[in-house]
């Protein structure tokens, strides 16, 4: 499992482009959507769904599946994109994003779409739910693992830190959290809006084992995801340094693309950017 070849890394990098393509497909259909946070988490989510997690897309309710919790529910386009690509449902369904009673609401609904584990959208709730899942698995002696993706702006919600303390108390070694540290939220720079740096120190102080990676480096993502718990008796958290809207040249690192209302010129540029990414991976 720890032996991941160069070929595997390449394969995953190509899938990550396809995931971004799926995100674009949905936004194109509806004309708008939460772009930035979906794109910054795309490489992490790709690694989880296509290499790391023990899942059965054809049997989404399989009891022993690993669980994925998207705490920052507004990033849902990356989840929809990954589930589609992994074959949980027919990819053409993605085109119903934004339609009446779509299976792809603006925040994920577990009762609408196979593969969605939790209803998120109100920030700061995911870690407690994930903690409950990990604790449940532990109580049952099951080897199920729980993976979480959180936003960095989201960390201002106090409920996260309640959950952080509880996960440490219960020594949830089967829990791996990725903080998608893209340094931005709606109102601008997370450091300026409400600073929570240094994050590694905070998580450590709460009893977690911490790693820092480049959240767009597939090799680094795989390394941490295959080597947790990082310390015995502790939950694990990865501070993933990312770029908001990663992949779209016109939007990278800009708070205003948190929610994107498309223009024809930007759409064309997005297509060109994806094509260029694919070419580089040939």
């Amino acid at each position: 499992m720890n032996q991941i070849s160069e070929q595997d890394v390449k394969r995953l990098e190509r899938i990550a482009v396809q995931i971004r393509r799926n995100i674009l497909r949905m936004i194109k259909v509806y004309g708008k959507g939460h772009l930035g946070g979906a794109m910054s988490a795309a490489d992490i989510v790709t690694a989880l769904y296509f290499q790391i997690m023990r899942i059965r897309p054809e049997e989404p309710k399989w009891k022993d599946r690993d669980r994925f919790v998207l705490s920052a529910g507004h990033k849902c386009l990356v989840l929809y994109a990954a589930l589609a690509e992994r074959g949980y449902f027919n990819k053409d369904l993605l085109d119903t994003y934004g339609a009446m009673d779509s299976k792809f609401p603006g925040h994920p609904d577990m009762h609408k779409l196979p593969g969605v584990e939790t209803n998120t959208g109100a920030l700061g709730h995911g870690l407690s739910i994930a903690g409950g899942m990990a604790l449940g698995a532990k109580l049952d002696g099951s080897d199920v693992k729980v993976y979480v993706v959180m936003g960095d702006g989201e960390l201002a919600e106090g409920s996260n830190w309640e959950a952080a303390a509880a996960c440490a108390k219960y020594q949830l070694e089967n829990l791996l959290v990725f903080v998608d540290k893209n340094e931005l939220q709606i109102s601008g720079s997370t450091k300026e809006v409400m600073n929570y740096d240094p994050l590694p120190d905070k998580w450590k102080a709460f009893g977690w084992a911490v790693r820092e990676i480049d959240g767009h480096n597939m090799r680094e993502i795989l390394d941490v995801a295959t080597r947790f718990p990082f310390e015995k008796g502790k939950p694990s958290v990865v501070i993933a340094h990312t770029v908001k809207s990663k992949g779209f040249s016109f939007a990278e690192g800009k708070a205003s693309y948190h929610y994107w209302k498309v223009t024809p010129e930007e759409l064309a540029q997005a297509e060109r950017d994806l094509a260029e990414m694919e070419r580089r991976l040939q």
Binding site: Y30, G73, G106, H107, T120, G121
Partner: peptide, 9 residues
């Protein structure tokens, strides 16, 4: 009125 963002919103 936040129609497309769903019940959490």
């Amino acid at each position: 009125t936040y129609n497309d963002l769903g019940p959490t919103h």
